[in-house]
Structure formats: structure tokens, C-alpha cells
């Protein structure tokens, strides 16, 4: 086993363990903490693929911001007192949807033609990422920021409406 493989398993095991923890933990806050573990380990896999920029963005956005907001929302609601609310009569539907999604993912993974063994990984510099993002991919980039903007405004409108009542 080369040392790349060792490192791969060192980061892959927490990813899977975290992902399983998210769905099996009885406590929602524990689920969110497992989610952080899983997402941070994915950053490790990105580093292994020489995608340092992506890895740092993963840590910054998912590790430092998104999951904190999830935790924040859960701490303001009293999740601890009602652990049973996690489960319900919709369980078979959820299982069906999850199973179908798994089948589709496995099918697309098997049917895709992967480029095969790569001996050399092209390291893409941050300058190149910046250039592509603001020239070739400028429109999708702007659309994404527009979607975020709408979500933000929607949240403000909802919060304001409650306050006025």
C-alpha cells in the first residue's frame, strides 16, 4: 500500500463514519456534529487530489459557516426535549426515496467511463480558477449569487412578517 492509499483511508473512514452517524444518531445536535466530521474529511480527500482551493473552501463554507448555522437554529429550538419527532409514519416513503437515489448513484457511477489511472495530477493555480470563474463561467456564478440573494431576502421578509403581527 502506497502512502497515498494510507492517507486516503485515514480520511475516507471518518467521512463514511460521519455520514452513517448523521442518519443513525438519535439526537439532532449529534447528527449535525457528525455532519461536520463528514464534510471536513471530504476536504481531506480534496487535498489528496491536489485541489487545495476546493479543500479550503469546503472547510470555510461547510465547516465554519453552514453547519454552525444549522447548529444555531437547533439550539434555539428545544430539540433535546423531543427526540421522537425525528421518526414518523412517512418512514417507508423516506426509505423508498433514499433507496432509489442510491440505485441511481450506483448506476451512474458504474456506467460512467472513468479516465482510468492517472500518474500525474495537473495542479490548477488559484489565478486560473479566478480567471475561469469570472470570464467563462461568469453567468452561472452570478446566477448562483442571485439565488443566495433571493434566499436571504426571503428569510428577512418571513422574519419581518412575524414581527408585525
Amino acid at each position: 500500500m502506497t502512502y497515498e492509499e494510507v492517507i486516503f483511508y485515514v480520511v475516507a473512514v471518518p467521512t463514511v463514519v460521519g455520514a452513517i452517524g448523521v442518519v443513525t444518531a438519535r439526537n439532532v445536535v449529534h447528527s449535525a456534529l457528525f455532519l461536520i466530521l463528514s464534510l471536513l474529511s471530504v476536504a481531506g480527500i480534496f487535498i489528496l487530489l491536489s485541489a487545495e482551493f476546493l479543500a479550503i473552501v469546503q472547510v470555510l463554507i461547510y465547516g465554519g459557516a453552514v453547519t454552525i448555522l444549522v447548529l444555531f437554529a437547533m439550539m434555539l429550538t428545544r430539540v433535546r426535549d423531543m427526540p421522537a419527532a425525528l421518526d414518523g409514519p412517512q418512514r417507508p416513503f423516506a426509505a423508498l426515496a433514499a433507496g432509489a437515489f442510491m440505485v441511481v448513484s450506483i448506476f451512474s457511477m458504474v456506467s460512467t467511463e472513468w479516465p482510468g489511472d492517472t500518474n500525474k495530477i495537473n495542479v490548477i493555480s488559484i489565478q486560473q480558477i479566478g480567471n475561469d470563474l469570472f470570464t467563462t463561467w461568469a453567468v452561472p456564478f452570478e446566477v448562483a449569487s442571485l439565488v443566495l440573494m433571493v434566499a436571504l431576502l426571503g428569510a428577512i421578509v418571513l422574519a419581518r412578517g412575524e414581527e408585525g403581527e
Partner: peptide, 25 residues
């Protein structure tokens, strides 16, 4: 000596917020 040094610094130090939330909860 990281090429993305400042960026790395900001991303990693943002992680400790999780610790405060964990301690508080």
C-alpha cells in the same frame, strides 16, 4: 509555506466556532 496561506488561516480559524457551540450546548 502555503500558496493560499492567508485563505487557509481564515478557513481553519473559523472552525473553532464549532467548539464554542459544542461547549455551550
Amino acid at each position: 509555506n502555503l500558496t493560499l496561506g492567508v485563505f487557509y488561516f481564515v478557513a481553519v480559524s473559523g472552525l473553532s466556532i464549532v467548539g464554542f457551540v459544542m461547549a455551550g450546548w
